[in-house]
Structure formats: C-alpha cells, structure tokens
Design a protein around this nucleic acid. Structure first.
Length: 201
DNA sequence: TAAGTGATGCAT
DNA sequence: TGCATCACTTAA
C-alpha cells in the first residue's frame, strides 16, 4: 500500500470517546523489517480520565506511564499472564485518556498473521485485543512508541477513503464496554457493526 | 463455563 | 510479604 500516511498528532487531541469513534475504518500497522502486518480498525473502547475502570485512574505508575504522555503515544500492557493489549493515548500530556484497539479486519501480512495465530481461520486472527497483538507481534517493547511517526515499528495510518470503508462495514454503533467490572455500562465501546471481525464479547 | 497465567497494587 | 484482581483467550 503506497497510501499509508500516518495520522497527524492533532487527530488524538480530542477526548477518548471521540477518538475511539474516529479511528474506525483507519489502519493499525506494524513493520517487521521489510514486511508489514496490520488491518482496518473495526472495534475500539474508550477509557476516560475520570473513569474508575481506567488504568490511569489512580495516578501514574511504572506500568501506565505512557498513558500520561503525548497524544498519539502507544500504551501497551500485559494482562492475565498471557496477553498484550494496545491503546492509543489521547488528550494533552498529563491527562490519562486512551483508546483500546479491540479488533481489526486483517489487511497486510496475512501469511505472517496466520502463522502467529496457529493456522486458525482468519476471523480468529485479530477479533480481540489480545488476539490482534499476537497476530501483529505487539508486546511491551512497543510501549511508549509514537504512533504518528512513520519510522516507528507500530503506527496508525489514515485510510485514503475512510468514508467508503465505513459504508461497507458500518454502521458505527456504540454500546457498553466488556470484560471490566467498573463503569462497564458506560457506552464507550465502538464498532463497525457490519464487520465479521468484531470481537463479539 | 472455567482454568490458566503472572504482573500489579493495596493491605498487612 | 500476601493476596485479590485483572481492559483476555482457549478448551471443554
């Protein structure tokens, strides 16, 4: 794909709910040497600064430090002893807001993703926040990367025709978050409801 | 439906 | 130091 321009930083200055919706239909990609893996974002979840479910709610620690960084920073955490999840930091430095990338429609590096997902069917490669990190090879070593920098291993890229992508895979719907015990009913989960690659939890 | 996995954070 | 919790996945 020749048209993979990185998102500009100001894209991530609004609050996490706005950014979570705005990211749908754009790309998350990871460079591995000369090759690329990634896909189209079809599901996101917002975590707000006043949000008891957010890792940043109780203040800055070694684990969540990058949540307090510049908008467009990657926050990657390790959970349940097995899985990594990747977030995009929003709002200005010092305010912990972030968007969890929950699911992708696979687009680039299909064979590499198939291998990393043990030969499972494509619908199971990236249809969950831990799955997509496994498929793309994202881990804590990517925590704190600038997702707006075209030289970063992990980055976010603008879809040249995001309106069309949303038409094809929409509509955009929002609803309760999943997998959390606090403030789960806040309608901060967003997805392209026509995509078969949503996590379905 | 439940087990597994290990880091994290708060209580002790 | 101990222990409950955890923004998940897989096997059953």
């Amino acid at each position: 794909m020749t048209t993979l321009a990185c998102m500009e930083r100001r894209f991530f200055e609004p609050d996490a709910a706005q950014v979570a919706a705005a990211l749908l239909g754009h790309y998350l990609v990871v460079g591995h040497g000369d090759s690329l893996r990634g896909g189209l974002i079809v599901e996101t979840e917002a975590y707000r600064v006043d949000d008891p479910a957010s890792h940043g709610f109780r203040g800055e620690t070694a684990r969540n430090r990058s949540m307090f960084g510049e908008p467009g920073t990657a926050y990657v955490y390790f959970i349940y002893g097995n899985h990594h999840c990747v977030n995009v930091v929003c709002r200005e430095r010092g305010l912990a807001e972030a968007v969890l990338i929950r699911a992708l429609a696979p687009r680039f590096g299909m064979e590499a993703m198939r291998r990393c997902r043990r030969g499972l069917p494509d619908r199971q490669w990236t249809s969950g926040p831990g799955k997509l990190c496994a498929a793309l090879g994202i881990d804590r070593s990517h925590d704190g990367l600038d997702l707006c920098d075209s030289t970063s291993a992990v980055r976010l890229a603008r879809h040249p025709n995001v309106a069309e992508a949303r038409r094809e895979q929409g509509p955009i719907v929002s609803g309760p978050r999943v997998g959390i015990s606090k403030a789960a009913t806040w309608p901060l989960r967003f997805r392209l409801a026509g995509s078969v690659f949503c996590s379905g939890r």
